[in-house]
Design a protein around this nucleic acid. Structure first.
Length: 494
RNA sequence: GGCGCGGUACCCAAGUGGUAAGGGAGAGGUCUGCAAAACCUUUAUGCGUCGGUUCGAUUCCGACCCGCGCCUCCA
């Protein structure tokens, strides 16, 4: 039993088998760094991250490459507008993107940048032109001649066979042989960035960069290519056309596409006022772990409705898991072992594996872990959980977290970092009271809290509940949650 | 218009030709000095609507209604 994935190319589920045994070469289309990343972007990147993590957990060596699109029309225009270089313009957003990705638990792939491959892209176009597949227009732009690639449309299932080739179609400023022919290389515009290359001055088309960089890093044929569903056409279709018409070999074997998310039931857009960057959400006081959890809770091929209610629910779910782990780690159990608990850990790991093998069904994997938590909590409550049972359950939790990455309680420092950024960036008015409130709990040092906790213990030993409660009140006000258990007091930050 | 996806309890959401995972919320309860955490009970004879196939359909087929995506660079 291995991983089965939906392949956009074949429109069906397929057994995933890499070209080279035990090694996966995958390429994911990354961000265009012209602004801060929004939650829609991160849904896709998290879906790819889940795939990457699960491949690793399944024993594959994963070579995962992602591009940073640091040159495109919008970037060039904005840079020209601001009077800075393309590099100066994108540096800020690339840095922000990488910080955000790390904040939300995305493992960093090997990064490749478009601006560092301009020469190779021009050479690629030159080769295509030599084969008669690319052609130059009077203004110095280059286009891909779709008529030369009969399979064009095979990924997006579009039929271009009825197209009349050679009929000259007028498309405002450019002269193309066919309206469908797409730009490989664009001629320079006055006042905007361009590069001098073997095919002349200009700038690369967007589709070209992914073909060139993926094949350079992973070879002419590789295992899997990922991106958001919107990239199926034309971006990925064009990559296939460019790459396969040049090499004559199959390009990527699996095509992995993440579905768009909705926000409060509607497509996210600035005009609807439901457009959120990751940083917007943190400034509203939402934890990165809540956001990650919510984004992983619906399988990647289903539409996910992102709501603030859902975000709060996700926070509670994560809390439940963290509480459970803390119970396991800090509790004292009688010696011995319990057969049911011994089996539970293994059973849960198997259920999670079966769920993820099934086209990364994250919802079912989560259901499996919660089932375990409930059953183990019952055993904990009744004293049936023994000292030898802990490790198996912790191991299942760890397997879960290798994929979902929400158990580590490091939200507050991450959120503080966003707060600092907001201050430095003049966005102080966007900082919500909720965020400020939350971050206060980080201000009391551990030693101070421990001291108050031992005061509480002393007061309780003397049955001075009034004093104990007032100390607890102070801690609660400072954002510290205090739990009194049978023979101990546990605390954590809100 | 062409191609594709989906409509499951108060909310989010998985799933199956044989009688509905999981999470959240609400209500009641157990435990507890109180609180928190945890646990228990409870909330869809029902899975958009209407037909059909079948011993049996939420699951397959058809029609319709509604939502969503792609169809010139938005993940």
């Amino acid at each position: 039993m291995g991983l089965r994935l939906y392949n956009t190319m074949s429109s069906r589920m397929e057994e995933f088998a890499p070209l080279v045994d035990r090694e996966v070469r995958m390429y994911a289309c990354g961000p265009t760094v012209y602004d801060y990343g929004h939650i829609g972007n991160f849904r896709t990147f998290i879906a790819v991250d889940i795939l990457r993590r699960y491949l690793k957990q399944s024993g594959y060596a994963v070579k995962h490459v992602m591009n940073i699109t640091d040159v495109d029309d919008k970037i060039i225009r904005n840079a020209a507008r601001d009077g800075v270089t393309v590099q100066q313009y994108t540096a800020k957003y690339e840095k922000a993107f990488l910080e955000d990705a790390a904040m939300i638990g995305i493992e960093q792939p090997t990064l490749v940048r478009a601006t560092e491959h301009i020469r190779q892209m021009a050479e690629f176009v030159a080769k295509l032109e030599k084969k008669g597949i690319a052609y130059r227009t009077d203004d110095g732009s280059y286009y891909f001649r779709i008529a030369k690639f009969p399979q064009y449309g095979k990924l997006s299932k579009k039929d271009f066979s009825g197209m009349v080739d050679g009929a000259r179609v007028d498309v405002d400023e450019y002269e193309k042989d066919s309206a469908r022919d797409f730009a490989l290389w664009k001629s320079p515009k006055p006042g905007e960035a361009s590069w001098e290359t073997v095919i002349g001055r200009g700038r690369p088309g967007w589709h070209l960069e992914c073909s060139v960089m993926s094949m350079q890093e992973l070879g002419e044929s590789f295992d899997l290519h990922a991106g958001g569903e919107d990239l199926v056409f034309p971006h990925h279709e064009n990559e296939i056309a460019q790459s396969e018409s040049l090499t004559g070999k199959p390009f990527a074997h699996f095509w992995f596409h993440a579905r768009f998310l909705l926000v409060e039931g509607e497509k996210m857009s600035k005009s609807l006022g439901n457009f959120f960057t990751l940083r917007d959400l943190v400034l509203k006081g939402h934890k990165p772990s809540s956001i990650r959890y919510l984004l992983t809770s619906v399988p990647y091929r289903n539409q996910l409705n992102f709501t603030f209610d859902g975000l709060r629910q996700a926070a509670v779910s994560v809390e439940r898991l963290r509480n459970f782990r803390s119970r396991l780690e800090t509790g004292k159990f009688a010696d011995g072992s319990n057969d049911e608990m011994q089996a539970l850990g293994k059973e849960t790991e198997e259920r999670m594996r079966a769920a993820l093998d099934d086209d990364l069904n994250t919802a079912q994997a989560q259901a499996a872990i919660f089932e375990m938590v409930r059953r183990a909590n019952i055993a904990l409550d009744s004293g049936q959980l023994r000292s030898n049972d802990g490790p198996g359950l912790v191991s299942a939790l760890n397997s879960f977290d290798e994929i979902f990455a929400v158990l580590k309680d490091d939200d507050l420092p991450k959120m503080r970092h966003v707060l600092d950024w907001a201050k430095a960036d003049g966005r102080e008015e966007q900082v919500s009271p909720e965020l400020r409130d939350l971050l206060r709990s980080g201000q009391l040092p551990d030693a101070e809290i421990e001291r108050k906790i031992s005061d509480m213990k002393a007061a309780r030993a003397a049955r001075n509940f009034q004093l104990s409660d007032s100390i607890r009140g102070e801690l609660t006000a400072a954002g510290i949650l205090v739990e009194i258990t049978k023979n101990d007091i546990r605390w954590r930050r809100k």
